[in-house]
Amino acid sequence: MDAPENPWFSLDYLERNWEEVSSQLVIHTTLTLQALLIAFAIAFPLAVIARRIPRLSGPIMGVSGVLYTIPSFALFGLLAPFTGIGRTTVLIGLVAYALLVLVRNIVVGLQGVDRDVTDAARGLGYTPTRLLLQVELPNALPSIIAGLRIAAVSTVALVTVGVVVGYGGLGQLMFRGLQSDYRAQIMTATILCLVLALVLDLMLALTGRLAMPWARRRAVA
């Protein structure tokens, strides 16, 4: 039987176009990681402020929630006149979308810390900074890691939408494949997106396990 002229799976396509595929995969990966790092760097202090000053919790969650409700195509389009076509526009959009997930999970984690534990730490003379870093943060880690895992997977998906401003990583291959009905190109980009999301999720899960040895001991017990 003859092989189909336009197969969905083709190692030949991957071999012939590996340089381009690997280049877009690197772009997709670095965009995702950079967006997560920036979003976390912004979300953590915001979450701490929301936890420490309850009256600011509503505005902080409200602003991040509004950003999350804007459709990705529309957000990239709105940013383009100010930030141009390319990486910066996509990165700003990705950070905006990751903020709500991260802020919410960090706040939930901090609020879930047993009040008796924090009161005992204060009684021992812990300063607010020491209390946060040595007591609240370790106890909030499960919720924080969960938020990072959700944000990572959603960011991998959202990077593809960056094609609207000409910087979508593997989304560039998907879009061109859809335009030309090149099935191998579409499927290759799709599978690589799935693999990237899975790898990042597993890495964050492993990081969480390593950062919370007490949780492993509890599970064994």
Results as ranks from 00 to 15, higher is better:
residue 94 L to A: 06
residue 204 L to I: 15
residue 41 A to F: 09
residue 210 L to G: 11
residue 98 A to N: 10
residue 176 R to F: 14
residue 56 L to C: 10
residue 161 V to K: 06
residue 140 A to P: 03
residue 218 R to P: 01
residue 81 P to N: 02
residue 146 A to S: 15
residue 74 A to S: 14
residue 33 L to N: 07
residue 152 A to W: 00
residue 114 D to K: 09
residue 80 A to T: 15
residue 22 S to D: 03
residue 153 V to I: 14
residue 124 L to P: 01
residue 79 L to T: 03
residue 121 A to T: 04
residue 204 L to A: 04
residue 207 T to W: 12
residue 210 L to F: 13
residue 90 V to P: 04
residue 157 A to C: 07
residue 197 A to K: 07
residue 37 L to C: 12
residue 50 A to V: 11
residue 89 T to V: 08
residue 76 F to P: 00
residue 143 S to I: 02
residue 20 E to D: 11
residue 198 L to P: 05
residue 161 V to F: 08
residue 121 A to S: 09
residue 117 V to K: 10
residue 35 A to G: 04
residue 116 D to W: 08
residue 1 M to E: 11
residue 133 L to C: 10
residue 57 S to W: 00
residue 34 Q to S: 15
residue 92 I to F: 08
residue 47 A to P: 01
residue 42 I to F: 14
residue 110 L to Y: 04
residue 199 V to E: 00
residue 221 A to F: 10
residue 182 Y to T: 15
residue 80 A to W: 08
residue 60 I to K: 03
residue 90 V to C: 07
residue 210 L to A: 14
residue 20 E to S: 11
residue 213 P to F: 04
residue 48 V to A: 10
residue 23 S to Y: 12
residue 42 I to R: 01
residue 185 Q to A: 11
residue 105 N to P: 05
residue 31 L to Q: 11
residue 208 G to Q: 03
residue 198 L to C: 11
residue 8 W to V: 06
residue 169 G to Y: 05
residue 96 A to W: 00
residue 132 L to V: 04
residue 144 I to E: 00
residue 81 P to D: 02
residue 21 V to Q: 06
residue 93 G to M: 07
residue 114 D to P: 06
residue 84 G to D: 10
residue 150 I to K: 00
residue 221 A to M: 13
residue 118 T to Q: 12
residue 17 N to E: 10
residue 29 T to R: 00
residue 71 P to G: 07
residue 58 G to Q: 12
residue 118 T to N: 10
residue 213 P to E: 05
residue 131 L to A: 02
residue 140 A to G: 06
residue 3 A to I: 12
residue 102 L to A: 07
residue 21 V to F: 04
residue 112 G to D: 13
residue 166 G to M: 05
residue 167 Y to V: 09
residue 154 S to L: 13
residue 21 V to P: 04
residue 130 R to G: 15
residue 61 M to Y: 05
residue 164 V to F: 08
residue 195 V to G: 06
residue 128 P to K: 07
residue 52 R to W: 11
residue 145 I to P: 01
residue 107 V to P: 01
residue 40 F to Q: 00
residue 97 Y to E: 10
residue 168 G to Y: 03
residue 142 P to L: 03
residue 147 G to I: 01
residue 139 N to R: 12
residue 91 L to Y: 03
residue 14 L to N: 01
residue 4 P to V: 03
residue 28 H to I: 00
residue 75 L to V: 04
residue 74 A to E: 07
residue 86 G to K: 09
residue 213 P to I: 05
residue 20 E to A: 12
residue 217 R to E: 15
residue 215 A to G: 05
residue 39 A to S: 14
residue 78 L to E: 01
residue 219 A to S: 13
residue 3 A to C: 06
residue 18 W to C: 02
residue 52 R to H: 08
residue 6 N to Y: 08
residue 74 A to G: 09
residue 128 P to E: 08
residue 57 S to G: 12
